[in-house]
Simulated scan of single mutants.
Amino acid sequence: MKRGLRRLLKVAVRPMKSERAHGGRVIHSYRGYGSRTEVFLIGRVFRQPGLNLPTRQDSLMSDLVDLVRRSIRWGIHDVEVEIRVNDTRCVVTTDRYGYFHANIELDEPLPADRVWHQADFRLLTGSGDPGSRRARATAGATASTDIYVPPPDVDRVVISDIDDTVMHTGVANKLTMFYRLFFEKAERRTAFPGVASFYQGLHEGADGQRQRPMLYVSRGPWSIYEVLETFFQINRIPVGPVLFLREWGLTLQHPMPQKAEDHKQTLIEKMLSLYEDMPFVLIGDSGQHDPEVYAQIVRDHPGRISNIYIRDVSRDGRRSDAIRELADEVSRSDCTLTLAEDSATLAEHAHQHGLVSKSCVEQTRAEGEQQRRRHPED
């Protein structure tokens, strides 16, 4: 129990470690994505107290202090952030929660000899009050992040849901998720059997050389970004460029998360526009509205979605029948929709359609069987 708590604490305060010295205003950036001529970046500017307490670095007390600092930080609205990607510069303004979103058309294409590039950030305004802005850089308020750009010969984009598709439900419930991630061999119990091998196969392709973009979307809040990254690393799931979460908008006046029913559809449509020459593979589950959302995407963008994979988690015959009707519908647009309870069945279908190798199918099946033997209760 003590080891689990300490491990949880380490991950929970990880973003604070590099920000301990600055105090005050902080730019927290997330990994970006894009093409050689256009990139997208997301980040947040927030204020956190210094709490200059005399604690030994990397001690339990210092972690607890950092956790308090993270818990009481707040986003700063209406401040300007300068972003540089190579020789291209732009300035964006934070929203009411301190977040900024940048869609940058580059002056010069990014080099084609690598997939990871860098963006640099600098805070320009000195106050969150628009009436007292000072157009100067704030000392220490800088950051950088990586940007993923697919290689020139990539053939597909994969977008996957997270909740009940990659991992058991719990992303939207922080306490449940923390428990599953850090206690009782959680790294083996949270991911569905075979997910790691199947997703690695999709990322690499049948020839092992594709390096396809793996984009993940969740209804969870941005505040669990680092925890999700740790989950992906623990379970050997290719994290791809980014995780797409959302701002819950929690306030004293509105203590419940804001609804964002079009969050996933908006993301997919943005990706279809960015990677306009590539077909897409969409992965979701039967528990919510993934099949309906994906079928609507096929209707709106005929010919762009090649395969849809749905993990059957509903255990409801009527739900399964409704999804099979959607499968018949999308098949008329040269798209296949596959419904299955296990990753091995999905991988077998993907192999038949040239998306993954035969070894991926074998590894997915072996991984699933091994995981089920270890945890038959799952």
Rank of each mutant, 00 (worst) to 15 (best):
A327T: 04
A327M: 07
D328Q: 13
E329A: 13
E329K: 09
V330E: 04
S331H: 01
S331C: 01
S331G: 04
S331L: 00
S331Q: 04
R332L: 12
R332W: 03
R332M: 09
R332C: 07
S333T: 11
S333F: 13
D334E: 14
C335T: 15
T336P: 00
L337H: 00
L337S: 01
L339V: 09
A340K: 11
A340I: 08
E341P: 10
D342A: 13
A344E: 13
T345F: 02
T345H: 10
L346K: 02
L346D: 01
L346E: 01
L346W: 02
L346Y: 01
A347V: 02
A347T: 02
A347D: 06
E348D: 15
E348F: 12
E348C: 08
H349D: 08
H349Q: 12
A350W: 04
A350R: 02
A350S: 13
A350H: 03
A350K: 02
H351Y: 14
H351L: 06
H353G: 01
H353E: 10
H353Q: 13
H353L: 12
G354K: 02
L355Q: 09
V356S: 06
S357V: 06
S357H: 05
S357E: 08
K358C: 11
K358P: 07
K358Y: 11
S359A: 15
S359L: 14
C360D: 14
V361M: 09
V361N: 09
V361Y: 06
V361C: 15
V361F: 05
